[in-house]
Design a protein around this nucleic acid. Sequence first.
DNA 1: GTCTATAAATGGATAGAC
DNA 2: GTCTATCCATTTATAGAC
Lengths: 191, 191
Amino acid sequence: MPDRRARRHEATRQEILAAAWQLAGERGLTGWSLREVADAVGMRAPSLYGYFENKDAIYDAMFAQGYQQLLEAVDGLPTAGDPRTVLQDVATAFFDFYVADPARSQLLFLRVIPGFTPSEGSYDLAERTLDRLREVLGSVGINRPEAVDLWTAVFTGLASQQVSNDPDGDRWARLIEPSVEMFLASEPPAA
Amino acid sequence: MPDRRARRHEATRQEILAAAWQLAGERGLTGWSLREVADAVGMRAPSLYGYFENKDAIYDAMFAQGYQQLLEAVDGLPTAGDPRTVLQDVATAFFDFYVADPARSQLLFLRVIPGFTPSEGSYDLAERTLDRLREVLGSVGINRPEAVDLWTAVFTGLASQQVSNDPDGDRWARLIEPSVEMFLASEPPAA
DNA sequence: GTCTATAAATGGATAGAC
DNA sequence: GTCTATCCATTTATAGAC
């Protein structure tokens, strides 16, 4: 068990990240400054440097945290069982995750921040998340690498269109089910 | 025929836009300043204000120009004929357009710039481009609005995955043809 | 039409006191 | 661990001379 000081430090880090997420959600992924984050947690900007080396380190922690959240969302899903049901569930979970926080999705799935590259550790987490998706799809007989790539393209595409072109509606959300059917028809699960 | 002065003015505007595209391509859509654009065209930053009201006006002109380019790419495509061929052509044309300039694609298809909204005129151009796509798809019997939405989702998805996850390869490009087949199987062209 | 000069604000980041 | 003070660079944008 870590000592009190280390835990307090970690708690403050989380507060800072929460404030950054909030601002990113309100003003766009790149639409906030360190001063604003500091204000939001009741600090002055220089104090942030006791918790993060620089702004990119905050983005990196957000990147890792975002994939951690996605990993948990995918982990909570049932595997095996009726392929149609499993695929609808994972498709819906991913879609919901994507549209729930468009700024987060830009950070995780698009290359939007000039000069920012995730650290090796954060990137590993992204890999593990994709591995977990492969497990879920594999559990219902979707194993071809090309099928997995097609799956990610279709559902990032649906979610991205939803966010960009109908942010308050469900124009593309309604296409999740037909998309799964389309996918299943062209990619019949192997035994 | 406009007088020499107006034409020179327009030519300089185009030079400025070309420089902005170049910088956006090299450093990301938001990774450049007015000063750098000015340098690239051999001006000082304040002189740009003789051609564009502000930076967002440059983004707006780029937005319009990008959709103009897409419109021309779609207009150059054959309509009618074998549905499979027509759809492969339009899918490939769109995919190539998207990956040819990821910064342009972020501007046109994603909401990446904090605070920027295209002007009404520029947005109209985007609408006309989508109308033209509807014509092409309609020419081979794809008319249902949901089918068009699904089409845009699938192919923005493929292209976006290609750019973000395999920028120098063809991992998702190779899925264009199977995706068209998948789409056709689930959305048989109406007579 | 382009320049110099500069405003006015904002940004990330560091030094050093407490 | 947090602060004040400040650096230093950068940004968009304007005023006014040439």
